[in-house]
Design a binder for these strands. Structure first.
Lengths: 182, 182
DNA sequence: ACCTGAACACCGTTCAAGT
DNA sequence: ACCTGAACACCGTTCAAGT
C-alpha cells in the first residue's frame, strides 16, 4: 500500500523500540516499508524532520490529555520517554528544535499555573530541563545495566534506583517544585 | 611526530570548536593529524572512548579547581560547555557513561556539602540534570539563531536571553538550590 | 503525485602486513 | 610498539527518470 507520514512514524517507533535510535536510519526504515531509501524524502525533507515527528508521537499523550498537577505532568513526561528504547535520547535530539521545546513548555506552564506557582514559565523551563537531563542519564545507565543483566547476577535493586521510578528523580522533582513555590 | 592520546584530544577540541560535533569524526581527525584512520584505534578503542576523553578535557577546569559555592560551580559547568561549539551535546553523549557522571556529581556534592545542604548527593544529581538539560537546549537554540544572524536583523536581545548568561538559567538555578535547602 | 535506480560523498571499525 | 593499506558494511541525501 501507499506510504504516508503516519505509516512512516509507525515504522519509526517500531524500529526504535526493537533496535534503538542508532538503528533508526532512513535506509532501515525504507527497507522495513519495502521502499527505496529515496522514497522517504518525498514525505520528510530530511532525517531531522523525521526525528521531530517521531518525538511528537512519543509526546502525544501529554498534548492530548494535559495533567493539572505539575508534579504529575513531569512524571508523565518521564514515563513517555521511558516507553521507548532510547526515548530520552530521541527527545533530546528533538528538543533542540525551539518550536517543539516551546510547545512542551506551554503544557508544563499550564500545569504550573493551575498549581498557583508565581512564575509558571520559569517553572516550565526549569522542570523540562531537569526531567530531560535526568531521564537521559538514567535511561542510558539503565540500558547499560541491562546489557550486563545476564552476566552480573541480582542487580535488580541497583537498576530499580535508576529506572522510571527512581527515588532520586522523585525527590529531586519535588525539591525543584518546592523551590519554584517560593 | 608521534601520535599520543594528548595530541588526539587537542585535535579533537580544535575540530569541535571550528566545525562542530558532526564533523568530529575519526576520519577527519586522522586527516587532521596526517595519519591513516586506523591509527586512531591503537590509542582509543572506539569513538565513544574518544568522546569521553574529549568531554573530560572540557570538564578539566572543574576537576582541577573545584568551587566552594554550589551556585558558582553550576555556572562554571555551564560555561565549560559553552566554551566549545556543541559542548553541551558532547557532554550529554559523554555523561551517558555512569563513571563520568559519578565523578561530576562528586564535584557538585562537595560544593553542596560546603554550602551546608541537607542532602548533598541529591542536590548534585538534581543540579547536574538541570544544568545539562538547559545547556543542551539553550546552546542548540543559540546556534540556530546564529545561523540566521546574517539574514534576520537585530536578534541580539533574543540571543542574549538564551546564551551562557540566560536569565532563565540563573533564576532556575537559584530556585532549584532554594528547593534543596529545605 | 509518488516512487525507483543509481549515484555521490561520506561514516566507524577491523586487521593483515609493514617498520 | 605504532602505523598503513585496504577492505567491509554501512550512512544521509539528491535527482533524473519512470509510472
Amino acid at each position: 500500500m501507499q506510504l504516508t507520514k503516519e505509516s512512516i512514524i509507525a515504522a519509526s517507533l517500531e524500529i526504535l523500540s526493537e533496535y534503538g535510535l542508532a538503528d533508526m536510519t532512513m535506509r532501515r526504515l525504507a527497507a522495513h516499508l519495502n521502499v527505496a531509501p529515496g522514497a522517504m524524502y518525498w514525505h520528510y525533507k530530511n532525517k531531522q524532520a523525521l526525528i521531530d515527528a517521531t518525538a511528537r508521537a512519543v509526546l502525544q499523550p501529554l498534548f492530548d490529555a494535559p495533567t493539572a498537577a505539575l508534579e504529575q505532568a513531569c512524571m508523565r513526561l518521564r514515563e513517555a520517554m521511558f516507553s521507548y528504547r532510547d526515548g530520552a535520547e530521541l527527545l533530546s535530539a528533538a528538543l533542540a528544535n525551539p518550536a517543539l521545546r516551546a510547545e512542551m513548555e506551554a503544557v508544563l506552564a499550564a500545569s504550573a499555573r493551575s498549581d498557583g506557582l508565581p512564575r509558571p514559565d520559569l517553572a516550565a523551563a526549569t522542570l523540562l530541563s531537569f526531567v530531560l537531563g535526568s531521564s537521559m542519564m538514567d535511561q542510558a545507565a539503565l540500558q547499560q545495566a541491562e546489557l550486563q543483566e545476564i552476566t552480573v547476577a541480582d542487580t535488580g535493586d541497583a537498576i530499580r534506583t535508576l529506572g522510571v521510578d527512581s527515588d532520586n528523580f522523585t525527590d529531586g522533582l519535588r525539591a525543584v517544585i518546592a523551590g519554584m513555590s517560593n
